[in-house]
Design a protein around this nucleic acid. Sequence first.
RNA 1: GGUGCUAUCGUCUAGCGGUUAGGACAAAAGAUUCUCAAUCUUUAAACCGGGGUUCGAUUCCCCGUAGCACUACCA
Length: 512
Amino acid sequence: MDRKVRVRFAPSPTGALHIGGVRTALYNYLFARQHGGDMLLRIEDTDSTRFVPGAEEYIIEALQWLGIEIDEGIGVETDKNTHGPYRQSERREIYHEYVKQLLDSGNAYIAFDTPQELEQKRLEIKNFQYDASTRLMMRNSLTMSEEEVKAKIESGEQYVVRFKVTPDEDVHVHDLIRGEVVINSNILDDKVLYKSADDLPTYHLANIVDDHLMEISHVIRGEEWLPSAPLHVLLYRAFGWEDSMPAFAHLPLLLKPDGNGKLSKRDGDRLGFPVFPLEFHDQKTGTVSSGYRESGYYPEAVINFLALLGWHATGDKEIYSMQELIDDFSLERVSKAGAKFDFEKGKWFNHQYLMAKSDRQLAQEFLPVLEAHGIPEDIYPLPTIEHIVGLMKERVNFVSELWEQCNFFFVAPEEYDEKSLKKRWKEDSPRHMQELLCLLQKQDDWSAQALDDLVMPWIEEQQYGVGIVMNAFRICLVGAARGPHIWEITGVLGKEETLKRVQTAIEKLTTL
RNA sequence: GGUGCUAUCGUCUAGCGGUUAGGACAAAAGAUUCUCAAUCUUUAAACCGGGGUUCGAUUCCCCGUAGCACUACCA
């Protein structure tokens, strides 16, 4: 195989890019990069009725965010686009030529059956299939005279062009992941290749013509295409392109986390995780679907997670950068079975990437969150913010979670957590806190060490119990039984704020 | 219904004829701590069933079963 590797990602602009599609794009990209080949983006908009405005821009933006770079096609500067156009709706003339070629060679024919007539046939004959066994009962150029066909077309009657499948032939498809797949042509129907109604081909025709013209070397796509792969082989054959036919690799599907079936948008809504890379506003239905980016995922984490959902190298390695994926990826090691979508692991991946960030970087990401919560910009100097973030990062999966974990650094508690109070706020607590308050008031050295040296001996002296005092103290400062080491908290809050919070807590909690 | 694909812990998977069937997520327990996390340690957890082939099958073959996909003038 000395042909240059050229792969394509060819979504249809029917809405947001599904996470399964993202994985397909990723595998294509990894394969292309590993072999020094080209990654093309082609838009398959041959169904004019399903076009969704904004979908194409969404796809480009999503791939960009994820770091899946496109070498050629939609969204790329024109001088690199030597095989365009890359939008199928702009390739009408090209398809005309190839439809004609198939018609002329007798590999296709014109059919006038209306959708209603076909529907009727399906009702009449169980398991009706438009193929060698039935095509002579239908209204097509095989059963009509040439003049009749011509007249109908000229009178404006809508028609389709169907592929004439030769019956009873074993068609072999070599799949890079699954090996040899053999299907008898009898189960294939005479697929519609072109419809006059919108002057567009269907996927099957467009896909073969484009892949050939764009010199695609490997077709890496979802498993849902496997059943139609033999048809595609037949089409390559009918065009006389069998020698340059691309290699096929059909990827396993992404399945629902629970139960069975393909992962769908509904599952995301139902189980509370995104199935789209970016938030998507459907202008037609007015619905908004959540995205990984907006949910606080890092693109590296999404990539890493997705890559391992259906592919795995020999070892136990789990954390892969894009470059490492490019180096290690191989189609042979893509698993054959579908993978249930385990979003819990997705969170874990995000946690890993979050932990790997510097405090400085995380602080920068956290600043907008603070602003969104109305925290004044100058509440603390930046190094303090970085310190806080460093204390808290190991206990969150997302930057956004940082706020709920450490808001007490920025705002005094207004309410006290019921459960924590019940467990940690004792009868003696107000008195303990009052005494602690007096003790702290006299303290000038506010370092963690000094405070520890001051408070611990006092607790021991009074025989109050470290847990009793410190937990009550924590409730005063945090409002609940959580957070980092208490001297970290006092350190950030400072003497004045610390004393104020203790005072407030004593007042609020004594009256209870 | 037809055709195809697939089948290892709950989940993602390693294994490519001989292993105490390994790792990770999730779960549980313990250690630690002023709390919650984190961390560390530990535990529990799998070869779909039946036939072959073989000295020996999780691994190769066949059948069954189950799951999934496809079966449109959608991709």
